[in-house]
């Protein structure tokens, strides 16, 4: 196989794998004669997506917005908290156990509480997306700061640098690749959060659409919603990966050297 063929195959692989999976699904549905209400055939799902694209798009955009707002809040809050935890051993020892405890709570359990507090609508979805996605950001930023080489710290201290200067000149740039790596994880979590909230109780978003379609035994629409979420998830993940590469080129050193 030539180099060009190899490279082409590498690009084509994700698409081939996905097509293969859908094909397997399609064949399994036909061979085992699976009723549509249990699992519709992929061709049927895609057909539904094309037929009902306007409704799907409207509900998707609602979910997308709540996710992005929740995610943006998570970045801001996660970055600040991560910097505080990574920079100060006191903040670390005080807050870390609390954070772990909070992260261990299933987020699905807090949605009903949120509904009591703020009612239905976009707000509980935004909050759920936020609380579910800030944890990996905090942990990663704090790790980036806490793993500054002791020699680097000695160099800065012997120059007479203040704690603030060490934080801004060494800590923050060093934490950036960790931050961007965590964003890829956090953005998919944010989606889970907002869809979760819409599914548990809500009147908007793709989660709500799936729930009501499910209640009408409209399996193709439910699955079409599922596919839409997957597509949005991939899109936002790719966006985060792109931003990561742009912002922290030095962490992907091999590519520029070559």
């Amino acid at each position: 196989m030539s180099e060009t063929q190899k490279r082409l195959l590498l690009v084509a692989m994700p698409w081939l794998a996905m097509t293969g999976l859908l094909l397997l699904w399609e064949v399994a549905c036909i061979v085992f004669d699976v009723p549509e209400i249990l699992a519709p055939r992929p061709t049927r799902i895609i057909e539904t997506m094309i037929q009902r694209w306007d409704i799907l798009l409207r509900f998707c955009l609602e979910t997308l917005w709540t996710t992005i707002i929740g995610f943006a809040l998570a970045i801001g809050f996660g970055l600040l908290l991560g910097l505080a935890i990574g920079a100060s051993p006191f903040v670390y020892s005080g807050l870390y156990p609390l954070l772990i405890a909070f992260n261990a709570i299933p987020k699905v359990a807090i949605v009903p509480i949120l509904m009591i507090w703020v009612g239905v609508g976009a707000l509980p979805a935004v909050i759920t997306a936020f609380v579910i996605s800030f944890f990996p950001i905090v942990v990663n930023v704090a790790t980036g700061l806490a793993t500054i080489e002791p020699e680097m710290r000695d160099v800065m201290r012997s120059l007479g640098a203040s704690q603030w200067e060490i934080l801004t000149k060494v800590g923050v740039p060093r934490a950036m690749p960790y931050l961007f790596a965590s964003l890829k994880v956090a953005v998919t979590l944010a989606f889970i959060g907002s869809v979760l909230s819409e599914t548990v109780g809500g009147n908007r978003g793709i989660g709500f659409l799936m729930l009501s379609a499910g209640a009408r035994n409209d399996a193709p629409t439910t699955f079409a919603g599922l596919f839409s979420i997957a597509i949005m998830g991939i899109a936002l993940y790719a966006l985060c990966a792109l931003v990561e590469r742009r912002m922290t080129r030095w962490a992907f050193r091999a590519e520029i050297v070559g």
Binding site: E149, E151, M152, D154, V155, S158, L159, V170, P173, R174, M176, T248, W250, A251, R253
Partner: peptide, 13 residues
């Protein structure tokens, strides 16, 4: 004071 160590401890960014 100036310091140099066994590792160059330069900042990659």
């Amino acid at each position: 004071v100036g310091m140099a160590f066994q590792a160059p401890t330069l900042m990659p960014w």
